[in-house]
Design a protein around this nucleic acid. Sequence first.
DNA 1: CTGAAAGCGCTTACAG
DNA 2: CTGAAAGCGCTTACAG
Lengths: 348, 348
Amino acid sequence: MASIKDVAAAAGVSVATVSRVLNDHPSVSDDARTRVLAAVETLGYRPNAVARSLRTDQTRTLGLVISDVLNPYFTELARSVEEEARALGYSVIIGNADERPDLQDHHVRTLLDRRIDGLLVSPAEGGSPLMLEAARAGTPMVFVDRWIPGLDVPVVRADGRAAIRDLVAHLHRLGHRRLAIIAGPAATTTGSERVEAFREALAEYGAPLPDAYIGQGDFQAESGRRVTEGFLDLPEPPEAVFATDNLMALGALDAIRARGLQVPRDMALAAFDDIPWFVHTDPPITAIAQPTGELGRAAVRALVDRIEGRPPQSVTLPARLVARRSCGEGRANDNRDDNQTPVQRSTS
Amino acid sequence: MASIKDVAAAAGVSVATVSRVLNDHPSVSDDARTRVLAAVETLGYRPNAVARSLRTDQTRTLGLVISDVLNPYFTELARSVEEEARALGYSVIIGNADERPDLQDHHVRTLLDRRIDGLLVSPAEGGSPLMLEAARAGTPMVFVDRWIPGLDVPVVRADGRAAIRDLVAHLHRLGHRRLAIIAGPAATTTGSERVEAFREALAEYGAPLPDAYIGQGDFQAESGRRVTEGFLDLPEPPEAVFATDNLMALGALDAIRARGLQVPRDMALAAFDDIPWFVHTDPPITAIAQPTGELGRAAVRALVDRIEGRPPQSVTLPARLVARRSCGEGRANDNRDDNQTPVQRSTS
DNA sequence: CTGAAAGCGCTTACAG
DNA sequence: CTGAAAGCGCTTACAG
């Protein structure tokens, strides 16, 4: 592969001049520029980004550590992150932690070793020592979706409280009184926060949230299945289940079906995170939709601000309830484009 | 951030010795090793991968260029690729082409600039000039899923022919005679191949595949919707539609629903690529399942073989039909774990 | 406007 | 076993 030396030789100039042409440095004669460009062309020369990074101490690369790529929510997040990063001249390397702290650690380490310019992370299980250390050491970092309290790191996330209140109101209106929740890991902010919001919303209706109705999941489908089976085995099973992510909702649906029961007749179901498939499940699933694309873009902007020396900003966007048929037929809002139709707009 | 010099100074040895310790070079005294390790520990030193790559001319990184991350099939492929790569000591950088040739080109260029050790690609729209050039220039490369004929590049893919034949038999058995297909871009191998296999299978039943029953899609949901609407507008609409990927099947389902029609009563539907959600759609969708994880792993192994100087091997794995209810109720094989149950095993 | 030279952080023959 | 030195491919003050 041709190097800058080859180009210099072919153009009859020094490597310094070649570098200047390549970097649009103003003080280059037209003549030199033309000859360099011609040489670049004929040699098919492409600058070595590795060498450039070593020299300039910047990689123009962002690291994104997410907890589960197979979760459509995170897939969409990753996509919007890459899109915005590309627009700003950065590449992104994704590290998939699969909700495993050890894997998360592996990716953070690898990314740091590669000297990425900044790190976007949605911490699994309370983060890792390495991550905390990096944050304290001043590695540009931004949390998306989930975060770790007590760190001076901007957070870009959706606030689901208002939407969860809307959901509880929706369930109540449809006659459901015994409401249960499938929680995510308590060590993740989204895990604990959604349970709290749910509990508070129930309290507004004077309803308690008994421990038996709080199932401990891990944001994966299998745990949704397991927890739901537990609910069904209860002497008095809940009438409605709220899965705090889409994969656990899928597991819950599996479990309910496996017993020959039907949603919503035998049990109502709702999920946090809306995904395209929810329109087509049997029945279509009521969900709380996050502005995922906007979250990803805002997170990248915050991180790049931080990297380029501008003050980064935390951003909190509202989530909204999208009612479908999985909680009952209370209202006629399950038309074909209900995917787009918020029942109530939560502008918290 | 501490550099190798700092470690050398702290340990009272030369940087060469530090490097040897770090790389497990045998000729280092126990004493030196201990002191270096201690210094590494106290300084929290981590080798700069950028510098190492520049020096060794290897990045221990694989590039993966896929056509659409939002497609669950590719998401799963990406995940298995990363997993196997990690097991072999490599990282992977994903480039999402979104089925756009220009984006594909962007990613290939970026990846090449970063001097990845090898490239795994599922070419969109017949590939890009850059990709062809790289292949000819000897960049280690392996095609996954889709490929470009005429290049000396190993291909790791699933052969769907037998499964498509099984599908046509299944549809025929259920009484469907007018069968249509939603094709992918003709410039992709999977796009053209699936149509051909479908046509050949129909021929075995003496059935033609009229042009009106071949809809041109682009592997995205929207095109599935559009094509299906066209089918429904025909004087004699097809009785069954075979979408050649899961997103177009989703679009088809949308279109059928939007007219107030039902699957399979008004129109049968089947898809290429099986995904977890197909078990839960209304109705559950009959699909051709690829051994996605195995494809990803085999592709990585082939690429790493190539990179490390071993002869790489092309691999073709069989796909299989998973019958559910979307083509009709012909057989009682729609139990709850039908996701795992092949109707007929195709070992082509 | 241009080039010689230093240096980014490593690895690795080479000499001892 | 160890260190001095060269060199990977760039960029960028510095001097002219």
